[in-house]
Structures are given as C-alpha cells and as structure tokens.
Simulated assay, not measured.
Amino acid sequence: MTTDIIETDTPRLRLRQWRDSDLAPFFELAGDPLVMEFLLPLPTRADSDAAVARTRSRIDENGWGFWAVEHKESGEFMGFTGLNSPMAELPFSPCVEIGWRFARKWWGHGYASEAARAALQIGFERLGLEEIVAFTAWNNTRSAAVMQRIGMTEDADGAFDHPLVPEGHALRRHRLYRLGRAAWRAAHGDSE
C-alpha cells in the first residue's frame, strides 16, 4: 500500500523520492573509496541499484525514509539524507536513525547539516518521534561532527559493536548519538 510521500525543501536543497535518473550518480558516489571509507563494502552496480529500489520502496510504504537530495539551483543529485528504521537488531532497537551520504563534490558546504536538520524537523514535527539516533564507525570524525552540528549528543555509554560488521574489522566499533524531541523543541521552539 502506497502512502502519501513526504518531501521537503530547504533554502538550497530538495529532499525527495528517488528517480531512475539518480541511479548512475548514486552508483558513482557509492564507488568512491573516500565517500565509502567508513562503510562496507563498495557495491556493484546491481547492488547499488537494489539498494535504491529498497529505499524507494520503504518511502512508498512509510511516506519517509532516506530521501534523494537534489541541489535546487543546479537540479543535480547530491546524495541522500533521511530517516530509517534499521533492519539490524541493535543494542538500542527499536529506533529511528538519521543518516546521510553525499558525493565528495558537495562536501564542506554545510549541505549534510542542512539536509539533516530538515529530516529531524520532519521526524519530530510531522512524525511525532520521541527520539532520533545516529551512529557511525568509531573513527568517522566527519559524520560525528555533523551529528554534533545538528544538535545530537554522544551517548557516553552507547558505544557498540555493529552486528553487520565482521568481528575483528576496524569498522565494527560504533559510537551512538541521540536527540530527543524535548531537546529539539527547546532548540527550535515548540511547534505544537
């Protein structure tokens, strides 16, 4: 069953459902070793297309998910940002996570933070979530910095070994960040 799909704009970005024209640029960014430095593994084109199909399907079912991000001025596909209910059983499940991944061309301009703030707003104000989490490999300082910029706080007791990363792998240990609805409202004004 298809539900109403939530999409939104920010001053510079459009968070929207995926299009077929996003497949090639998504595969290109997913094949960039620097973009994928803290993710496993580099996908084949079939794997990349299948990941987009799953993401599109979840947005169709829920109305939200990991949205494609488009640069409004140029119309270019930039990557994705959004909300997701992880399939893996994590120590803090059930949960809704926020995540992002952008092509390197778009790094260093605040786009990830801008898109993530829009996703948080949807999560707290439209979906009524009580908490949104984020997690990343222990040494991924770039993503951790975005988590901090968007108001998330690292859970001092939240470090965990990601169950989908093989034992002994350098990326297995993860850090956990959290943001509650009350803290969001305090920082952005009560919208109810």
Rank of each mutant, 00 (worst) to 15 (best):
A116N: 03
F102L: 13
G75N: 05
P94Y: 12
V146D: 13
A68I: 01
Y111N: 03
W106R: 11
I122R: 10
E76R: 11
S85P: 12
I122Y: 07
A68P: 01
F92G: 14
G99D: 14
D155Q: 04
G128A: 09
W67C: 02
R126G: 05
I98K: 02
G82I: 11
E131W: 01
L129Y: 08
K105L: 11
M152R: 11
H109V: 05
N140T: 10
S93C: 15
F80Y: 11
S93K: 14
F92V: 15
G79D: 09
W138K: 04
E97Q: 13
V146T: 13
L83F: 03
A134H: 10
I132R: 01
A88F: 05
Q148D: 14
G99A: 14
M152F: 08
G99I: 14
W67N: 06
N139V: 04
E154V: 12
G82M: 08
L90V: 09
E76G: 02
A145I: 07
T153N: 12
G79R: 03
W138G: 00
Y111G: 03
R104A: 15
R149Q: 12
F160C: 06
G158I: 03
R104E: 15
D161P: 08
P91S: 13
P163M: 11
G75A: 12
M147E: 09
G75L: 09
A119K: 02
W138V: 04
F80M: 11
A137D: 01
G123K: 07
P163G: 09
I98P: 00
R126I: 07
M147K: 02
M78W: 05
H162V: 03
S143C: 08
T136S: 15
W138T: 01
P166L: 00
T141G: 04
F102T: 00
F160N: 07
A119R: 03
R117G: 10
A137W: 04
A137L: 07
H109N: 09
T141M: 13
V69D: 01
M152D: 08
